[in-house]
Design a protein around this nucleic acid. Structure first.
Lengths: 154, 154
DNA sequence: TATTGTTATACTCTATAACTATA
DNA sequence: TATAGTTATAGAGTATAACAATA
């Protein structure tokens, strides 16, 4: 093997490319996703199903339509996710109070228990992904992401 | 229709969920991706092929292996992306200078021209995604993302 | 023996269109 | 007529394993 071994920062990282926020978001998201999905595998969950379970546990009594809007997924994808969680006994579908078309997704006791365990594991995984940032930087990152999302065009 | 119309910020956004950096990253990345891919469609590119073309135009003379490492893709995925761009005459494969196994991906003049046009469109799309952030906040976001990626576990 | 690029395959994710039941 | 949920399907993205040429 030639002695052209790269430093820990690969040479391409230095390129102007690294100023592209879209690419940076994609890379950090991808890195976090790999870790999260690895972590969630122990609970037979993926990021998607975990997010649905999390909202089902939140006390907000979300309808499938609200889940789709909030998670930026098509309603048809929510169907598949809820089907799977329901089949495993982690959530149930309840008819909407005021509109019989709506279905509210609620966690079962077992779902709540699985969620609690998964949540702790995911928090640890997130800390690992962001280990290079100081606590105050993590707070800043969170608030910038939230601002970009909920006061912006996104 | 009942008069339960939500404000522009859906009620789920208020949930504790919105503190999950992984979910925030996923949402902002997804929102940006949709915009980017819509923008890039005019050039018959997607985010992936655009990234490869961009690096091929960078003057860094990347090998396929380096592209795979930097873009966090499997080498076999790079093959497909380069195949497509090569078939359209936007890039060429050159044999590595010192290692005949390597293939360097270089942009053709036409590739460079397509890239220049696409780059301008993508910049506008990025500005739209981040329209809620002040310029200084965009700078901060970029530097935090970069720090998390290149000094961290990611 | 290890690495670069390649082929092949299977699985997940994303995007659409059409259908049903309710409103 | 419009909306919530559902079904079906096709295309894009992701993850692996195995192989030939080269180191």
């Amino acid at each position: 093997m030639q002695d052209e071994v790269e430093a820990s920062v690969p040479r391409l990282a230095e390129a102007a490319i690294a100023d592209d926020i879209g690419l940076l978001l994609a890379k950090l998201h991808a890195a976090g996703s790999v870790l999260n999905n690895r972590t969630l595998a122990a609970f037979e969950l993926r990021e998607r199903s975990y997010s649905v379970l999390r909202l089902a546990c939140s006390g907000l009594e979300p309808t499938q339509r609200e889940l789709a809007d909030f998670l930026s997924l098509d309603p048809s994808q929510i169907v598949a996710l809820v089907d799977e969680l329901e089949g495993r006994g982690l959530v149930t579908r309840e008819q909407g109070r005021t509109d019989r078309r709506q279905k509210i997704v609620l966690a079962t006791p077992e779902g709540a228990s699985v969620h609690a365990a998964a949540e702790a594991a995911v928090a640890a995984s997130e800390a690992e992904t962001l280990s290079a940032l100081a606590p105050s930087e993590t707070v800043t990152l969170r608030s910038l992401l939230r601002k970009a999302l909920w006061s912006g065009a996104a």
